[in-house]
C-alpha cells in the first residue's frame, strides 16, 4: 500500500475507534457525571462549606488563623481539578482494560483493526484525555460555587491553561494505560489503596508545593509524582496569586511523564495482547 493510502486507512480506523468510544460515553453520560462530580462535591461541601459553618469550626478549618492568607477553597480548586483529571484517566483506561484482559477479551477484537497495535493503545490515551478534560470542566464550577468563601481565580495565560489541561489529561490516560496493563486484573481493586490514594494525597492537591519547604525530603520526594505537576500547573494557570511552580518546568515535566508513561503503557499493552 502506498504511504498516503496507508495513513488514510490508519486515520479512518483510529477515528472509528474514537467514534465508538464517544458513542458509548454519550450513552453512559449519567454514570460518568456522577463519577466525576461526587468526589469534589463531597470534599468541597465538607471542607469548604460545613466546616467554616460549624460552631467553633474555625479551629477545625485547615486554614484556621491564616487570616490574610489564601482561602482553602482557592488552594483546593486547582488541586481538585487535577484529581478529577487523574481519576478520569484511571477510570477510563485502567479499570476497563483490567476487565477486558481478565474477563471479556473484547480487546482482542479491537486489536484486529487495520492499525498498528500500539495505535489502539494510543487511542485509549487520547479518548481518556477527552474524558479528563470534561472532568476538569465539571470540577471548576463546583469548586467555584460550593465553598462559602469563593476562591480567587484569574487566568493570565489561556494558552498555558490549555496546554496544562491537555498535557495533564494525556498524562492521566497514559498513567491509566500503564496501570491497566501492568496490574493483574484480579488486583485492580488494590490500585486505589496502593496508587491512587498516595499520589492524590502526596500530589500537592490540598497544599501548594512551595509550602512544603520546611520538609525538604518530602518536598523533593513528591517531585516523582506526576500529579504534583498537574496541580501546580493548574495553580499557576488559574490561581496565580498562590505560590506555584515555574510554568516552563511544569510543562517540561508533564511532557517527560507523558512520554515515559506512554512508552511503558504501550509496551505493556503490546505484551498483553500479542502472544
Amino acid at each position: 500500500m502506498a504511504t498516503n493510502a496507508r495513513i488514510v486507512s490508519y486515520a479512518r480506523a483510529f477515528a472509528g475507534l474514537f467514534m465508538r468510544d464517544l458513542y458509548v460515553l454519550r450513552r453512559e453520560m449519567f454514570p460518568f457525571l456522577i463519577r466525576v462530580a461526587m468526589n469534589p462535591i463531597l470534599f468541597l461541601f465538607v471542607f469548604t462549606y460545613i466546616m467554616p459553618h460549624m460552631s467553633g469550626g474555625a479551629t477545625l478549618s485547615p486554614t484556621a488563623g491564616s487570616g490574610a492568607g489564601p482561602s482553602f477553597s482557592t488552594i483546593l480548586l486547582p488541586g481538585l481539578m487535577a484529581v478529577g483529571i487523574m481519576f478520569s484517566g484511571i477510570a477510563a483506561v485502567a479499570l476497563p482494560l483490567a476487565q477486558e484482559f481478565g474477563i471479556t477479551r473484547e480487546i482482542d477484537d479491537r486489536v484486529m483493526c487495520p492499525l498498528p497495535t500500539g495505535a489502539v493503545a494510543i487511542e485509549k490515551i487520547c479518548f481518556s484525555a477527552v474524558q479528563s478534560a470534561i472532568a476538569a470542566a465539571i470540577v471548576y464550577p463546583l469548586a467555584y460555587y460550593i465553598p462559602s468563601t469563593k476562591p480567587i481565580t484569574h487566568v493570565t495565560s489561556w494558552p498555558f491553561l490549555i496546554a496544562v489541561v491537555i498535557l495533564a489529561s494525556l498524562t492521566s490516560g497514559a498513567l491509566g494505560l500503564t496501570i491497566g496493563t501492568t496490574v493483574k486484573p484480579q488486583q485492580i481493586g488494590l490500585i486505589f489503596g496502593v496508587v491512587v490514594m498516595p499520589i492524590t494525597f502526596l500530589g500537592c492537591v490540598y497544599y501548594p508545593w512551595a509550602l512544603l519547604d520546611k520538609m525538604p525530603i518530602l518536598q523533593h520526594g513528591v517531585l516523582l509524582n506526576p500529579i504534583v505537576y498537574m496541580s501546580e500547573g493548574l495553580r499557576g494557570a488559574l490561581t496565580p496569586a498562590l505560590p506555584h511552580m515555574n510554568a516552563a518546568l511544569v510543562l517540561l515535566m508533564l511532557l517527560v511523564f507523558l512520554s515515559l508513561l506512554t512508552w511503558l503503557g504501550v509496551k505493556g499493552f503490546l505484551r498483553r495482547v500479542i502472544g
Partner: peptide
C-alpha cells in the same frame, strides 16, 4: 476475519453497533 474461541463482542454496544463500528474501523 477472525472468530476466536471466546466471545469478544463489544458488551457496551448493540449487535447493530458491533457490526456497524467494525465497518467504520475498516474505513
Amino acid at each position: 476475519g477472525v472468530v476466536p474461541q471466546y466471545n469478544t463482542l463489544d458488551r457496551s454496544c448493540t449487535i447493530w453497533e458491533n457490526i456497524h463500528f467494525h465497518c467504520l474501523f475498516f474505513g
